[in-house]
């Protein structure tokens, strides 16, 4: 599936943000806008997750458009 829709790799982004990054972000300082760093980071991750899923969605839309176009132009390609 990833071969045909490589953009789905974006769905792994929250795993990186919330889990893989943990050792680096598990800290009190620096505080950001008063928030302890760990809390700031997890809040950021929570806001970035929908963005990552959006990128997967956008990739799918492009994929769909490409497929429709290729489907319509199938005979041309066959001739070439």
């Amino acid at each position: 599936m990833l071969r045909k829709r490589p953009h789905l790799a974006w769905l792994a982004a929250p795993y990186v943000l919330y889990l893989a990054a943990l050792p680096a972000v598990n800290r009190l300082h620096p505080t950001v806008a008063g928030l302890p760093f760990l809390f700031f980071w997890l809040l950021l991750a929570t806001l970035l997750t929908p963005a990552a899923v959006y990128l997967a969605w956008r990739g799918d839309r492009a994929h769909r458009a490409r497929r429709t176009r290729d489907g319509a132009g199938g005979t041309d390609r066959g001739a070439a």
Partner: peptide
């Protein structure tokens, strides 16, 4: 709780 729900929602896409 937030971490697993976010991850779960994301893979729910597939």
């Amino acid at each position: 709780v937030i971490a697993y729900m976010s991850c779960g929602y994301a893979i729910g896409y597939v």
